[in-house]
Design a protein around this nucleic acid. Sequence first.
DNA 1: CGACTAATGTTAGTGCACTAAACATTGGTA
DNA 2: TACCAATGTTTAGTGCACTAACATTAGTCG
Lengths: 152, 152
Amino acid sequence: MSKATPSEFENPLALEEQVCFALSVAARSVVAVYRPLLEPMGLTHPQYLLMLAMWEDEPLSVTALARLLQLDPATLSPLLKRLEASGLLRRERAAHDERSLAIVLTDRGRELRAEAEKVPPAIVERLGLGAAELERLHRQLTRVIAAAVAVE
Amino acid sequence: MSKATPSEFENPLALEEQVCFALSVAARSVVAVYRPLLEPMGLTHPQYLLMLAMWEDEPLSVTALARLLQLDPATLSPLLKRLEASGLLRRERAAHDERSLAIVLTDRGRELRAEAEKVPPAIVERLGLGAAELERLHRQLTRVIAAAVAVE
DNA sequence: CGACTAATGTTAGTGCACTAAACATTGGTA
DNA sequence: TACCAATGTTTAGTGCACTAACATTAGTCG
């Protein structure tokens, strides 16, 4: 992930030209834009993403969530406990397989979706980037993710 | 930061269409590609970025590093202590201002640069993405960062 | 001069992410 | 039936990132 603007005699380790640096800063900066919108809902950004997954499909196991969110089960475990403590979901044992958890939303968790629907348009408005540009970025990121995941 | 592929009747909260999700996953996935290359050097990815900054300019204060890396001083403080414990840099007091730190590389820190120079080409090779594509991505990310930082 | 105010770093507390290892349950197999 | 491997989740340990509160030093102005 080297230079973005190749120039023959320049430093190949120049911080500002590293794509990985831009990626890290972009992710942190964008999450920072979400923070003030999510905070009144009592959610962090990873918790918001987890709720998006639950609003699409329910119940889900830890393994299923790990696959959807591309996170380690070990990361999800405490995250789920915090959301349970917040009263947004419950961690029940699956009837058919006692090893597995059946994570289900509470009524409060389901109701929160209405609030969440206001978030994406608010973010787009704050960032002031066009839909076309966001779409282009999304496509590029998808390609990078595929490339990075394929490494192993 | 809503949908990437707008489609009239679709869920605006669909996880897979959120640019912020793609951004988070991309950042984590790419860092994961770096990990096995940095680990033999005894560096984490944030530590690697900090070293890139130091290899470009030295000495630097905590404030200067915070600006360059777009990180909080409170994040840098323990990070610098770990790098000092690793013997890669020293935290000295600036002569002209006793409040400020003058962070300087040790000889070992400077020598590590030779190893680090092998990293970017190795990453590019592993990812298998062309230079043009990386450059395009870098430009887009720069625009997003500018937009996100401008929000405040 | 001496009190304000701003600048510079650090500490404490919360939460995320990863690795490795432990633990529990299940389901076959000897 | 008693083991044993596979599957699913949790725990422990390290490190990053953010917020808020704090200590110290520097500069400023009455």
